[in-house]
Simulated scan of single mutants.
Amino acid sequence: MGSYPSLNGKVVLITGGSRGIGAQTARAFAAQGARVCVVGRDQAALAAVVEEITALGGTAMSAVADVTDAAALAAARGVVEAELGPVEVLGAFAGGQGYPATTAELTEQRWRQVLDSDLTSAFLTVQTFLPGMVEHGRGVVLTMSSSAGRQPSQANLAYGVANAGLVMLTRHLATELGPRGIRVNCLAPSSIRTETVAANMPEAVQAQVAAKHPLARLGTPQDVAGAALFLASDDAAWLTGLTIDVAGGRVTN
């Protein structure tokens, strides 16, 4: 990965940080000298990420929280600010729930669950940590959408709608918060070979999916983390309101 000296010493908080893209992004920020807090519901998985970072000489901590619960997020904010200080870079990366299903199969309960986990969670996360950024007149917010929010896909309708909503949430926040010194950008990955994908998608299917991308491979969590580092750094100081398709060229606008 590139070197971003402006990230050294920054307080970075990543939701969805227990595994996959979130965990790799936390490792990448820590390698730049940032002080990192990973947030999620799996205490053991969070502890493993923290242990890995600290073993390499980085600074990391964890906070267990359900990111669809405003009170739990407020408690996490208190914990991280007491130990590391105000959050300067916020990665609202929690989400998922993109399993294929026809619209006829979607229940009302499932619709609400997906929108809560992917869209409402990002809203609540930003709302929780925004006051500290406003107070200090600076900050970076990174949201996590998906290629499913950029074009129709095999993912269920609720997931596509929630991720499209994240794109507009990003643009709205960027316009609103730019005058306060806060930049907001969005990452929209396509097919990423996370631990879950590697374990559950047969190699032959992975090859078929990879062939649909102009770069002829699946993405990696490192690919997404690299884009996150750039957007959070001073090298991207004139960039806000963007959605970056980390998609190997497979993008239809």
Rank of each mutant, 00 (worst) to 15 (best):
A82C: 02
E83N: 01
E83A: 13
G85A: 04
G85L: 11
P86Y: 06
V87L: 02
V89D: 02
V89C: 01
V89K: 02
L90E: 06
L90H: 04
L90R: 01
G91E: 02
G91P: 01
A92N: 00
F93Y: 10
F93S: 06
F93P: 03
A94V: 09
A94Q: 01
G95Q: 08
G95Y: 10
G95D: 07
G96W: 09
G96R: 02
Q97N: 15
G98K: 01
Y99T: 12
Y99G: 06
P100I: 10
P100F: 12
T102P: 03
T103K: 04
T103P: 00
T103E: 05
A104L: 15
E105S: 15
E105C: 04
E105W: 07
E105F: 11
L106A: 12
T107R: 09
E108Y: 11
E108V: 14
E108M: 13
E108N: 11
Q109D: 15
Q109G: 14
Q109V: 13
R110E: 10
R112K: 13
Q113F: 15
Q113D: 13
Q113M: 15
Q113R: 14
V114M: 06
V114Y: 07
L115Q: 12
L115D: 05
L115C: 09
D116E: 14
D118A: 03
L119H: 01
T120H: 04
T120Y: 01
T120C: 00
T120Q: 05
S121K: 06
S121R: 07
A122H: 02
F123G: 06
F123H: 02
F123S: 00
F123L: 07
L124C: 10
L124I: 11
L124N: 05
L124D: 10
L124G: 00
L124S: 03
L124P: 00
T125S: 05
T125K: 02
V126S: 03
V126R: 04
Q127F: 06
Q127K: 13
Q127R: 14
Q127N: 14
F129P: 06
F129C: 04
L130W: 11
G132I: 12
G132L: 07
M133L: 15
M133A: 12
M133N: 11
M133I: 15
V134I: 15
V134S: 05
E135C: 02
H136M: 05
R138Y: 10
R138C: 03
R138G: 08
R138K: 12
G139P: 08
V140H: 02
V140E: 01
V140W: 01
V141Q: 04
V141T: 08
M144N: 07
S145Y: 08
S145E: 06
